Simulated scan of single mutants.
Amino acid sequence: MSPHKSTVKKIAKHPHYFPDSFRNDYANMAYIDHYKNASIVLERRVDIESLKDTFIPKVFKERTWSKLLNPMGDVYDCIIREFFANAFLECDHINCWVRGREFTISRDLIQELLEIQLTTPDTSLHYDERKEKLEPLVQVLGGQLKKKALHTIELSPEMRASAYIMIFNLYPMKNLTTLSGPRTVFLHDLFTHKEIDICGQIYHLFVKCIKKRKSRLTLPFPSLVMSLISRARVKIPSGLPVMQREEPISEQTIIWSKAHIPGPSIDVSQIPRDEAAEIDRFTSIPEDTP
Rank of each mutant, 00 (worst) to 15 (best):
residue 217 L to W: 12
residue 248 P to G: 07
residue 135 E to I: 08
residue 28 N to L: 03
residue 203 Y to F: 15
residue 66 S to I: 07
residue 69 L to E: 01
residue 114 L to M: 09
residue 207 V to S: 03
residue 28 N to E: 01
residue 167 I to M: 13
residue 211 K to S: 14
residue 56 I to D: 02
residue 208 K to R: 11
residue 276 A to L: 15
residue 104 T to Y: 06
residue 55 F to E: 05
residue 147 K to Q: 12
residue 156 S to T: 15
residue 152 T to S: 03
residue 136 P to W: 08
residue 196 I to W: 14
residue 39 S to V: 00
residue 208 K to E: 05
residue 14 H to M: 06
residue 120 T to D: 05
residue 98 V to W: 04
residue 22 F to V: 05
residue 108 D to Y: 08
residue 276 A to F: 15
residue 266 I to P: 07
residue 113 L to M: 10
residue 41 V to M: 07
residue 251 E to N: 10
residue 46 V to G: 00
residue 252 Q to W: 03
residue 222 P to T: 11
residue 210 I to V: 11
residue 38 A to Y: 05
residue 257 S to L: 12
residue 188 H to C: 02
residue 212 K to D: 06
residue 164 Y to H: 13
residue 189 D to H: 14
residue 100 G to R: 07
residue 218 T to L: 03
residue 237 P to K: 13
residue 216 R to G: 10
residue 200 G to T: 12
residue 180 S to T: 15
residue 63 R to L: 08
residue 172 P to R: 07
residue 250 S to Y: 05
residue 132 E to S: 12
residue 23 R to L: 08
residue 288 D to A: 14
residue 223 S to Q: 09
residue 277 A to S: 14
residue 35 Y to F: 13
residue 252 Q to A: 03
residue 127 Y to K: 10
residue 231 R to D: 13
residue 289 T to R: 02
residue 151 H to N: 08
residue 193 H to M: 04
residue 136 P to Q: 04
residue 250 S to V: 12
residue 126 H to N: 15
residue 105 I to G: 05
residue 183 R to L: 00
residue 192 T to M: 08
residue 174 K to G: 14
residue 160 R to G: 02
residue 235 K to F: 10
residue 208 K to G: 00
residue 221 F to P: 08
residue 225 V to S: 09
residue 33 D to C: 10
residue 216 R to Y: 12
residue 151 H to K: 10
residue 52 K to A: 11
residue 222 P to I: 08
residue 75 V to R: 04
residue 267 D to Q: 09
residue 157 P to E: 01
residue 90 E to K: 15
residue 199 C to I: 08
residue 59 V to E: 06
residue 55 F to G: 06
residue 181 G to P: 05
residue 79 I to W: 01
residue 19 P to G: 02
residue 226 M to S: 07
residue 65 W to A: 00
residue 241 P to V: 11
residue 22 F to L: 07
residue 187 L to I: 02
residue 96 C to F: 06
residue 59 V to A: 01
residue 144 Q to F: 07
residue 52 K to H: 05
residue 91 C to G: 13
residue 29 M to N: 07
residue 225 V to D: 06
residue 34 H to F: 14
residue 232 A to K: 11
residue 16 H to R: 11
residue 150 L to D: 05
residue 97 W to T: 02
residue 119 T to R: 09
residue 243 M to G: 02
residue 252 Q to D: 09
residue 114 L to I: 02
residue 144 Q to H: 14
residue 274 D to H: 14
residue 259 A to E: 10
residue 121 P to W: 09
residue 89 L to W: 09
residue 167 I to V: 12
residue 98 V to E: 02
residue 285 I to D: 07
residue 71 P to V: 01
residue 38 A to G: 06
residue 180 S to P: 08
residue 253 T to R: 10
residue 189 D to M: 08
residue 178 T to Q: 15
residue 94 I to E: 09
residue 82 E to V: 01
residue 188 H to K: 07
residue 274 D to M: 07
residue 177 T to Y: 10
residue 226 M to K: 07
residue 150 L to K: 04
residue 62 E to I: 03
residue 129 E to A: 04
residue 15 P to L: 09
residue 160 R to F: 07
residue 148 K to P: 00
residue 40 I to H: 02
residue 272 P to A: 10
residue 142 G to A: 00
residue 209 C to T: 12
residue 86 N to F: 14
residue 29 M to F: 04
residue 194 K to N: 10
residue 82 E to A: 14
residue 276 A to S: 15
residue 63 R to E: 01
residue 251 E to D: 15
residue 105 I to W: 14
residue 200 G to D: 11
residue 10 K to E: 04
residue 191 F to I: 13
residue 257 S to F: 07
residue 57 P to V: 01
